[in-house]
C-alpha cells in the first residue's frame, strides 16, 4: 500500500484549508534505515496510530517556522514558545493524521491524542518500524519534515 501520497496530500490540504498556505514536497521521501536515532528540529509533534497498523506520524520544524505556522492557523502573531503554540501544533498534527487515515481505501486508523515537544530531541526508531521521512517546505516560512512510521 502506498502511504506516502495520502500523507503528503493530507499535509498540503490541512495547511491549505486551515492556514491558507500550500507547502510542497521538496525531495523524494527517504526510507530511513532502522534501528536508528533521528535528530529532530526544535519542535516536534507526534500522534500515535493504531488499528490497521501501529505507528506514528511526526512533524518536526524549527521554532521560527512553527511560530509562523501556528500563528497563521490561529490568525494571530506568535513570537514566543507558549501554550498557544504547543496546543496549536498538536491540533494541526491531529488534523493531518485524521485526513491521512480518511484517504486510505479500505483501512482505517484510530488516533491517539497528540503530543508536542519543544527542544531538539533524539528519537530512537525501532528495527521493526518502516520509517519514511518526507522533506517539505513552506515557501513563506521555511522547511519542515514529516515522518511516517508504521510497524511492518
Amino acid at each position: 500500500m502506498n502511504y506516502e501520497t495520502p500523507c503528503v496530500e493530507s499535509v498540503i490540504e490541512t495547511f491549505s484549508s486551515m492556514c491558507g498556505v500550500e507547502p510542497e514536497q521538496i525531495g523524494e521521501a527517504e526510507e530511513l534505515e532502522t534501528p536508528q536515532t533521528f535528530k529532530t528540529d526544535e519542535f516536534l509533534g507526534i500522534i500515535g496510530l493504531s488499528g490497521h497498523k501501529k505507528g506514528d506520524i511526526m512533524m518536526t520544524m524549527p521554532s521560527q517556522v512553527a511560530m509562523k505556522m501556528v500563528g497563521s492557523f490561529l490568525m494571530d502573531e506568535i513570537t514566543e514558545i507558549n501554550s498557544d503554540l504547543l496546543d496549536g501544533f498538536g491540533e494541526i498534527i491531529n488534523i493531518i493524521a485524521g485526513a491521512f487515515s480518511g484517504k486510505l481505501q479500505g483501512v482505517s486508523f484510530e488516533l491517539a491524542l497528540p503530543t508536542v515537544m519543544a527542544g531538539e530531541l533524539q528519537i530512537h526508531i525501532r528495527e521493526s518500524v518502516n520509517c519514511l521521512a518526507i522533506p517539505m517546505r513552506f515557501a513563506e516560512w521555511g522547511d519542515f519534515k514529516v515522518l511516517l512510521m508504521l510497524e511492518e
Binding site: L74, E91, L113
Partner: peptide, 9 residues
C-alpha cells in the same frame, strides 16, 4: 474542545 487553539479559531 480540549484544544484551546481550536476554540480560539
Amino acid at each position: 474542545d480540549d484544544s484551546a487553539t481550536m476554540r480560539k479559531i
